[in-house]
Write a protein that binds this DNA or RNA. Sequence first.
DNA 1: TCGAAAATTTATGTCGACAAGAAAAATACA
DNA 2: TGTATTTTTCTTGTCGACATAAATTTTCGA
Lengths: 238, 238
Amino acid sequence: MTTTPSAKDTEKSTERKRGSGVQFVYDVLRDEILNLTLAPGSAIDEVQLAQRLAMSRTPIREALVRLAGEGLVTTLPNRSTVVTNIDLLNLHAFFDAITLMYRVTTRLAAQNHQPEDLVTIRARQAEFAQAVAAQDALSMIGTNREFHAAIAAAARNPYYESLFLRLLDEGRRLLRLYYSSFNDQLPHEYVVEHEEIITAIENRDIETSDALARRHADQIVSQTRTMIADDRRIDIAL
Amino acid sequence: MTTTPSAKDTEKSTERKRGSGVQFVYDVLRDEILNLTLAPGSAIDEVQLAQRLAMSRTPIREALVRLAGEGLVTTLPNRSTVVTNIDLLNLHAFFDAITLMYRVTTRLAAQNHQPEDLVTIRARQAEFAQAVAAQDALSMIGTNREFHAAIAAAARNPYYESLFLRLLDEGRRLLRLYYSSFNDQLPHEYVVEHEEIITAIENRDIETSDALARRHADQIVSQTRTMIADDRRIDIAL
DNA sequence: TCGAAAATTTATGTCGACAAGAAAAATACA
DNA sequence: TGTATTTTTCTTGTCGACATAAATTTTCGA
């Protein structure tokens, strides 16, 4: 575990454009955190990262500051920065907030969407349906996020959008912990619910959009709760 | 305009603890941005700031990254970072979001507050009432923020809390633009409404809390809208 | 053998410097 | 005189190095 000569080295070392350094580190770290490649609670060594990504510590630190702002890492003063733990005790706050954001963004999408938004939303839904057909649980999580992110974009409210994206990412991390038991027929129900949501948005039916989003969120929340309840053994690992 | 020998130099230069640099810059910049000491749209010169605060550019850049994450500054790639403009065109999104956050945090405070929360909330309310009595518009803005921030803390939902704080700060910046016409009897109404909200929270009356918060928010929004409508001349300055 | 204090090591926070884009200025050409 | 091009200047992005705080190890004493 000292040095990681993994298969994901990124092209040449010196072939990076000026100004892309921070963004690159940010993307890599963010992805590894959300994929649980970097375990919650694990420390992030700046020097090691600098070696691995072949750059100085400066852009790495700036990326870490950014990630800290989004709550993905936690910086202990004068100490190491660690990947933020998944807080199983405050899950109710998470579920409460994400449910509200599902509802609000869907409502506002019904109200404010432009024609091109529906094209994007349908494209995301197609990708989600494809992931479901392929029984690819990981891909489902990702494409489901993008579907709702597209709706949030159509809602035209950057404040809701940014919170919602943050919550969706947090959920992605949470589901990764428990994605093993993803072999029931629930995913197909999600596909149907997505279709209903699209129709409601298209019809600019705000109340129906709200109701559908709420039902959808409740469904997701209760399934996630079940997963967690079924799999308590992981808790002690945190 | 080159060097600014203003009256706010901060003690000696070398007397700063290790690790406090970024936080210090962050606090200074944040305050100056919210007070409009740094005008929206104005560029931030890293070198000049480094000279003024007597430190290297590194901690300043990290503070800027943090501020960018909160939307207070905007970083143009390979270009200067500027204080984020107040977007008067998307105000409806702002009002929508802040109204919802007023409601949600007040609801949840009624539901989740602990005894010590009420002590804090009452203290903040006393400070607000004092600002109103003193006719100090600037202090009203600040103490009003702290009052609602205390309620948000009692709501025990960090997701709502962080969004709400961000919105309250944005509102503080907005009101600064228009705080001149603050000489009517409205502030006293706010004091009364605050008292009613406290009572509803204390009684754990969720629905009343919600209704009061909504009315309070509508009041604030409509007053702000009026201010803006009365004072269009500033728009061209942006 | 155990515990406390001192020394060492490790990693972070900060610094000054250099290089590469972008804006501004200067020059050349029509 | 106006426009295009080159040059200069200026600011940002990145780097390597040093200093300091915390963790770790070592040493000393009871």
